[in-house]
Computed example of a mutant assay.
Amino acid sequence: MIARNMHLFPLAGMAIGLIAGGIGLGLSEAGADPLVVALLVVAVIAVITGIHHTDGLADFADGMMAGGDKERKISAMRDSSVGSAGVTAVVLYIVGMVVALSLAGGTELLKAVLFAEVAAKLSMVLMAWRGRTAAPGSGSPFVSAMKGGRRAAFAVIISAIPLVILGGWAGLAVLSTGVISSVILVSLSSRSFGGITGDVMGAANELTRLASVLVFVSI
Protein backbone atom coordinates (compact mmCIF):
# COMPACT_ATOMS: atom_id res chain seq x y z
CA MET A 1 0.00 0.00 0.00
CA ILE A 2 2.76 2.45 0.96
CA ALA A 3 4.90 1.44 -2.01
CA ARG A 4 2.05 2.03 -4.47
CA ASN A 5 1.67 5.57 -3.13
CA MET A 6 5.35 6.41 -3.01
CA HIS A 7 4.83 9.27 -5.49
CA LEU A 8 2.96 11.05 -2.66
CA PHE A 9 6.02 11.05 -0.39
CA PRO A 10 6.66 14.77 -0.99
CA LEU A 11 3.26 15.47 0.60
CA ALA A 12 4.41 13.59 3.69
CA GLY A 13 7.55 15.70 3.58
CA MET A 14 5.42 18.84 3.59
CA ALA A 15 3.56 17.65 6.68
CA ILE A 16 6.77 16.76 8.53
CA GLY A 17 8.38 20.03 7.48
CA LEU A 18 5.44 22.12 8.62
CA ILE A 19 5.34 20.44 12.02
CA ALA A 20 9.09 20.49 12.74
CA GLY A 21 9.61 23.85 11.05
CA GLY A 22 6.61 25.33 12.83
CA ILE A 23 8.03 24.29 16.19
CA GLY A 24 11.35 25.81 15.19
CA LEU A 25 9.65 29.03 14.12
CA GLY A 26 7.83 29.32 17.44
CA LEU A 27 10.97 28.72 19.47
CA SER A 28 12.96 31.12 17.32
CA GLU A 29 10.38 33.88 17.65
CA ALA A 30 10.34 33.27 21.41
CA GLY A 31 14.02 34.14 21.54
CA ALA A 32 15.50 30.70 22.16
CA ASP A 33 19.18 30.19 21.36
CA PRO A 34 19.64 29.22 17.67
CA LEU A 35 21.68 26.10 18.49
CA VAL A 36 19.04 24.93 20.97
CA VAL A 37 16.29 25.55 18.44
CA ALA A 38 18.20 23.64 15.76
CA LEU A 39 18.84 20.69 18.08
CA LEU A 40 15.17 20.50 19.05
CA VAL A 41 14.08 20.66 15.41
CA VAL A 42 16.40 17.78 14.54
CA ALA A 43 15.03 15.84 17.52
CA VAL A 44 11.43 16.47 16.41
CA ILE A 45 12.22 15.23 12.91
CA ALA A 46 13.83 12.11 14.38
CA VAL A 47 10.77 11.41 16.54
CA ILE A 48 8.32 11.91 13.68
CA THR A 49 10.24 9.79 11.18
CA GLY A 50 11.16 7.05 13.63
CA ILE A 51 14.91 7.30 12.99
CA HIS A 52 14.80 4.37 10.54
CA HIS A 53 16.19 6.54 7.74
CA THR A 54 19.13 7.50 9.96
CA ASP A 55 19.74 3.80 10.51
CA GLY A 56 19.75 3.45 6.74
CA LEU A 57 22.44 6.14 6.53
CA ALA A 58 24.61 4.22 9.01
CA ASP A 59 24.16 0.95 7.09
CA PHE A 60 24.84 2.69 3.77
CA ALA A 61 28.11 4.16 5.10
CA ASP A 62 29.22 0.76 6.41
CA GLY A 63 28.47 -0.83 3.05
CA MET A 64 30.25 1.88 1.08
CA MET A 65 33.40 1.59 3.20
CA ALA A 66 33.48 -2.22 3.25
CA GLY A 67 36.13 -3.89 1.12
CA GLY A 68 35.50 -6.64 -1.38
CA ASP A 69 32.90 -7.30 -4.05
CA LYS A 70 29.27 -6.19 -4.23
CA GLU A 71 28.02 -9.16 -2.24
CA ARG A 72 30.40 -8.39 0.63
CA LYS A 73 29.38 -4.72 0.60
CA ILE A 74 25.69 -5.66 0.73
CA SER A 75 26.44 -8.07 3.58
CA ALA A 76 28.18 -5.28 5.51
CA MET A 77 25.22 -3.00 4.89
CA ARG A 78 22.81 -5.62 6.22
CA ASP A 79 24.88 -6.40 9.32
CA SER A 80 22.81 -5.55 12.41
CA SER A 81 25.85 -4.08 14.18
CA VAL A 82 26.92 -0.56 13.25
CA GLY A 83 30.53 -0.08 12.19
CA SER A 84 32.83 2.89 12.59
CA ALA A 85 31.85 4.28 9.19
CA GLY A 86 28.18 4.20 10.14
CA VAL A 87 28.77 5.89 13.49
CA THR A 88 30.91 8.58 11.87
CA ALA A 89 28.30 9.23 9.16
CA VAL A 90 25.48 9.64 11.68
CA VAL A 91 27.51 11.93 13.96
CA LEU A 92 28.55 14.14 11.04
CA TYR A 93 24.97 14.21 9.75
CA ILE A 94 23.50 15.30 13.11
CA VAL A 95 26.21 17.90 13.73
CA GLY A 96 25.80 19.19 10.19
CA MET A 97 22.03 19.51 10.56
CA VAL A 98 22.25 21.33 13.89
CA VAL A 99 24.90 23.76 12.67
CA ALA A 100 23.15 24.44 9.34
CA LEU A 101 19.72 24.99 10.91
CA SER A 102 21.20 27.28 13.55
CA LEU A 103 22.11 29.67 10.74
CA ALA A 104 18.43 30.29 9.94
CA GLY A 105 15.75 31.82 12.14
CA GLY A 106 12.10 32.78 12.08
CA THR A 107 10.28 32.14 8.80
CA GLU A 108 13.57 31.31 7.07
CA LEU A 109 14.01 28.39 9.46
CA LEU A 110 10.52 27.18 8.66
CA LYS A 111 11.27 27.36 4.94
CA ALA A 112 14.60 25.58 5.36
CA VAL A 113 13.00 22.64 7.17
CA LEU A 114 9.94 22.50 4.90
CA PHE A 115 11.93 22.66 1.66
CA ALA A 116 14.50 20.13 2.87
CA GLU A 117 11.84 17.60 3.85
CA VAL A 118 10.13 17.86 0.47
CA ALA A 119 13.44 17.50 -1.40
CA ALA A 120 14.45 14.55 0.79
CA LYS A 121 11.26 12.66 0.01
CA LEU A 122 11.49 13.53 -3.68
CA SER A 123 15.02 12.10 -3.83
CA MET A 124 13.75 8.73 -2.61
CA VAL A 125 10.99 8.73 -5.21
CA LEU A 126 13.42 9.50 -8.02
CA MET A 127 15.86 6.85 -6.79
CA ALA A 128 13.15 4.20 -6.87
CA TRP A 129 12.18 5.36 -10.37
CA ARG A 130 15.67 5.40 -11.87
CA GLY A 131 17.37 2.66 -9.86
CA ARG A 132 17.18 -1.09 -9.90
CA THR A 133 16.98 -3.43 -6.92
CA ALA A 134 20.39 -4.60 -5.70
CA ALA A 135 18.92 -7.46 -3.68
CA PRO A 136 15.50 -8.54 -2.41
CA GLY A 137 14.49 -6.54 0.63
CA SER A 138 12.37 -3.72 1.99
CA GLY A 139 13.21 -1.45 -0.94
CA SER A 140 12.13 -3.88 -3.66
CA PRO A 141 8.38 -3.08 -3.59
CA PHE A 142 9.11 0.65 -3.92
CA VAL A 143 11.36 0.14 -6.94
CA SER A 144 8.76 -2.06 -8.59
CA ALA A 145 5.93 0.39 -7.88
CA MET A 146 7.79 3.37 -9.34
CA LYS A 147 8.55 1.96 -12.77
CA GLY A 148 7.16 4.27 -15.44
CA GLY A 149 7.66 8.00 -15.49
CA ARG A 150 4.14 9.26 -14.75
CA ARG A 151 4.32 8.88 -10.97
CA ALA A 152 7.82 10.34 -10.81
CA ALA A 153 6.67 13.35 -12.85
CA PHE A 154 3.75 13.85 -10.48
CA ALA A 155 6.13 13.78 -7.49
CA VAL A 156 8.33 16.42 -9.13
CA ILE A 157 5.33 18.67 -9.82
CA ILE A 158 3.89 18.51 -6.30
CA SER A 159 7.38 19.17 -4.92
CA ALA A 160 8.09 22.09 -7.24
CA ILE A 161 4.87 23.99 -6.53
CA PRO A 162 5.49 24.91 -2.85
CA LEU A 163 9.26 25.23 -3.26
CA VAL A 164 9.12 27.63 -6.19
CA ILE A 165 6.10 29.62 -4.97
CA LEU A 166 7.42 30.08 -1.42
CA GLY A 167 11.14 30.05 -2.09
CA GLY A 168 11.70 31.41 -5.57
CA TRP A 169 15.26 30.80 -6.69
CA ALA A 170 16.20 29.37 -3.30
CA GLY A 171 13.35 26.88 -3.53
CA LEU A 172 14.39 25.94 -7.06
CA ALA A 173 17.94 25.39 -5.84
CA VAL A 174 16.69 23.06 -3.11
CA LEU A 175 14.53 21.19 -5.63
CA SER A 176 17.58 20.77 -7.86
CA THR A 177 19.50 19.47 -4.85
CA GLY A 178 16.95 16.70 -4.42
CA VAL A 179 17.21 15.71 -8.08
CA ILE A 180 21.01 15.85 -8.18
CA SER A 181 21.34 13.91 -4.92
CA SER A 182 19.21 11.09 -6.29
CA VAL A 183 21.29 10.88 -9.47
CA ILE A 184 24.59 10.79 -7.57
CA LEU A 185 23.41 8.20 -5.05
CA VAL A 186 21.93 5.92 -7.70
CA SER A 187 25.26 6.03 -9.52
CA LEU A 188 27.30 5.35 -6.38
CA SER A 189 25.01 2.55 -5.25
CA SER A 190 24.93 0.90 -8.66
CA ARG A 191 28.74 0.75 -8.71
CA SER A 192 29.09 -0.41 -5.11
CA PHE A 193 26.05 -2.65 -4.62
CA GLY A 194 24.74 -3.33 -8.11
CA GLY A 195 21.62 -1.26 -7.45
CA ILE A 196 19.70 0.33 -4.60
CA THR A 197 18.18 -1.02 -1.39
CA GLY A 198 15.92 0.27 1.34
CA ASP A 199 19.00 1.38 3.28
CA VAL A 200 20.23 3.36 0.28
CA MET A 201 16.89 5.16 -0.02
CA GLY A 202 16.93 5.88 3.70
CA ALA A 203 20.42 7.31 3.37
CA ALA A 204 19.25 9.43 0.44
CA ASN A 205 16.54 10.92 2.61
CA GLU A 206 19.05 11.99 5.27
CA LEU A 207 21.81 13.15 2.94
CA THR A 208 19.42 15.11 0.74
CA ARG A 209 17.87 16.76 3.79
CA LEU A 210 21.29 17.91 4.99
CA ALA A 211 22.41 19.03 1.53
CA SER A 212 19.17 20.94 1.02
CA VAL A 213 19.48 22.83 4.30
CA LEU A 214 23.10 23.68 3.51
CA VAL A 215 22.12 24.97 0.07
CA PHE A 216 19.23 27.01 1.46
CA VAL A 217 21.21 28.73 4.22
CA SER A 218 24.05 29.44 1.78
CA ILE A 219 21.88 31.40 -0.66
Rank of each mutant, 00 (worst) to 15 (best):
A32E: 10
D69W: 08
A58T: 04
G31W: 06
E29S: 09
G67T: 02
D62P: 03
G105S: 13
D79V: 07
I74M: 00
L101D: 03
H52D: 11
H52A: 11
V36I: 15
V82F: 06
V87I: 15
L114S: 09
I158H: 02
D33A: 14
R151S: 12
G67I: 01
G139N: 08
T107Q: 13
S75P: 02
A66Q: 06
A128E: 05
S144D: 15
A66E: 00
G149E: 05
M124T: 14
V113C: 03
D59Y: 03
G63N: 09
L92K: 06
A155F: 10
A46E: 12
R78I: 00
G137Q: 06
A134P: 13
L126G: 07
V98Q: 00
M65P: 01
S138M: 15
G83R: 01
K147C: 10
Y93M: 14
A120G: 11
V47W: 09
L103C: 08
S75I: 05
M97I: 04
H53P: 12
G68L: 12
A128G: 07
I157R: 10
I51Q: 02
A43G: 01
K111S: 05
P141M: 07
A61W: 06
L92A: 13
V125H: 05
F142A: 08
A66F: 01
L103V: 12
V41W: 06
V42M: 10
A153T: 11
S75Y: 02
T107M: 15
T133F: 01
A134D: 02
S75T: 09
G148Q: 09
V41K: 03
G50T: 05
V113D: 00
A104G: 08
A58C: 10
V42S: 11
A153N: 02
A76C: 10
L57H: 04
A30V: 07
V125F: 12
R132Y: 12
S102W: 05
R132E: 14
M124I: 14
A153M: 12
L35S: 12
L40F: 13
K70S: 00
A46H: 11
L109F: 06
L110S: 02
H53E: 11
L92S: 04
R151E: 12
A76V: 00
L39N: 03
V99R: 04
I158K: 06
G68W: 02
K111H: 11
S138C: 09
R150V: 14
G31L: 13
D69R: 10
S144M: 15
L126H: 01
A43Q: 13
G148T: 13
D79R: 04
D33K: 14
V125W: 07
M97W: 00
D33N: 15
V95I: 15
A66H: 00
F60Q: 04
G56Y: 06
L101G: 02
T54I: 12
P34T: 04
A30M: 09
V47H: 10
E29P: 08
A46K: 11
V87H: 04
G31N: 03
M64A: 13
L109K: 07
S140V: 11
G67A: 09
R130Y: 07
M77A: 02
V87T: 11
K73I: 00
W129S: 04
V143K: 03
D33W: 06
